[in-house]
Amino acid sequence: MDIIKKITRRSFIKKAIITLVSLELVYVFVNLLKKGGETKVSSNLFAAGDIDLFEKGRVYPFSTERFYLSRLDDGGFLAISTKCTHLGCTVQFKNSDNKFLCPCHASAFNKHGEVLAPPATSALDLYNITIENGEIFVDTATPVKRAKYNSSQITYA
């Protein structure tokens, strides 16, 4: 064990101090970078409107809030994020094809946000929906990640 022999008490202390100081610097720096981004709010309810406004089987854009409200054929709601799960471009719903298309690398998603065409590998993120007195609220603060679509993600009135 050459390496072990080479370490003397002196060099050990020296190395330990250098390591500690650099770790400390890294820690401080990482925290500094983290702080800048901490303007998060835990929830941000966006009032999308009355249930009756939305026809069944259609998809409504809320582009400034970066989501689409998809009302399924059975009357359930999904609030689908516009952020493509491939590399983060903004997807657009094409009424003519009845699917979400990503302009960047041509991923496609259906009305449930499921992947129809790669390169994306997971379904589009969702936002939580709450329905109170017939009005729809979408929590736009925290997108919910999912790999696949399943029916428990749908919110009913």
């Binding site: 400034t64 903004t90 302009p103 390169p119």
Partner: peptide, 27 residues
Amino acid sequence: NPLESPNPSKAPWYFMGFQELLLHMHP
């Protein structure tokens, strides 16, 4: 404009090799 991505969107050219790789391979 965060609401609209141009088509196609590309990384800087020196990262295009990576982006190309990503089209063929799991990220």
